[in-house]
Design a protein around this nucleic acid. Structure first.
Lengths: 202, 202
DNA sequence: CATAAGTGTCTACCAAGTAGACACTCAATG
DNA sequence: CATTGAGTGTCTACTTGGTAGACACTTATG
């Protein structure tokens, strides 16, 4: 396979990345709706014509930014995986840690959830993506064949995890990735035990 | 004045900025000495040839990064200024706040002081620049014509301020710019009073 | 000693990025 | 209501920044 195409588009991708980066910063600065195409190209130090080579308008840039980050999140998880810890504690091992480290690596983007007039669709599609990852990429195992509505359980677990993520981001990543993942493990262990011994008391 | 030159070099400046940005991130990741030219261009998504168009080697890139940031710091202060608060509390008003906000805006760069194997010259030339700003851009006034060795006093004030800045950066900017500047004001007020009423007890 | 990885230089090529003009919409302003 | 200004989207022709790839060289590693 020749790498002519990949390296040729390296230049294009680079430009797109810089435009996206500029959009992130400008949303934080003045809110999504106030951002103009001119603002974006000025901030990223490109010509206005260049913008239209890559995107028809601001909406498409925003869409590309959102999709690329959420797809990156999905891709970061890796292949289907059987949790090392047995049972319903699927939140905790390598795949979940991949999610955490991806978010931290791209915290500049995910901080956008702290803003009101922010990237359209972010507040709905970010949690949806977490759920999708749980549904498609995680394999849940039951212990002792305890019957459970697996669809509900995945939702429950996914949104629980999302809540913790959201809080972590909102607080400005005050604890490290490692500390955060350990907090999640502790919480889920508690959940596991209460589920195991007392039954689903919710 | 035509802007042909400025806009033509916009492209060049943009590339240089991205290379510098890549260097910052790579120093944090693996230390200055371990960073190669190849690492830099890969990280910034440029061709290796492109690097040599702009810089003869890694050292020159590092030098350009350091100089541009420290010159930017100097330039951020603005023109000579007589402190609004009277006397030896020259640390506190608009010019000092400019320094603080410049550092915060470029915190990505200034965080490099937290690393051991970091940008050559940073640890010595950063405080020197603060001092230079105090010497060249601040006008100190005495109250009631109290005699004082002005050169010593500027050093004392500049390095005191630098110590606070250093701590603020090292702690990961835990307090906001506004909180930080107010802490500095409080500290300097104390200093002013003790100086004024008790004399230089140090 | 050999293999691998990085350096610095050079050449030829081309497409990404640029300047600038156009007609258009939409708000704000007197 | 007419006017001014700012932003949008499109298009054309140009140029230069960035690319590929080869070269000889230096270090480091096993």
């Amino acid at each position: 396979m020749n790498n002519e195409q990949t390296t040729t588009s390296q230049r294009q991708n680079r430009t797109k990345i810089h435009l996206k980066q500029a959009l992130i910063e400008l949303i934080k600065e003045k809110g999504y709706h106030a951002v103009t195409v001119k603002n974006i190209v000025d901030h990223a130090a490109y010509n206005r014509s260049t913008f239209y080579i890559h995107y028809p308008d601001k909406i498409e840039l925003a869409e590309d930014l959102l999709v690329s980050m959420l797809q990156g999140l999905e891709a970061s998880v890796g292949k289907p995986h059987v949790p090392g810890h047995k049972v319903y504690t699927a939140t905790l091992n390598a795949p979940s840690f991949n999610i955490v480290s991806y978010i931290y690596k791209n915290r500049n983007f995910f901080e956008l959830i702290n803003y009101d007039d922010t990237l359209p669709g972010l507040h709905t599609r970010f949690p949806q993506t977490i759920l999708k990852i749980y549904q498609e990429q995680f394999i849940f195992e039951t212990i002792n064949n305890i019957p459970v509505n697996m669809d509900y359980f995945k939702r429950y677990t996914a949104y629980g995890f999302y809540g913790l993520l959201h809080n972590w981001i909102q607080d400005g990543f005050k604890v490290t990735q490692e500390e955060f993942i350990h907090e999640v493990i502790d919480l889920t262990k508690t959940h596991m035990y209460s589920f195991k011994y007392i039954g689903d008391h919710q």
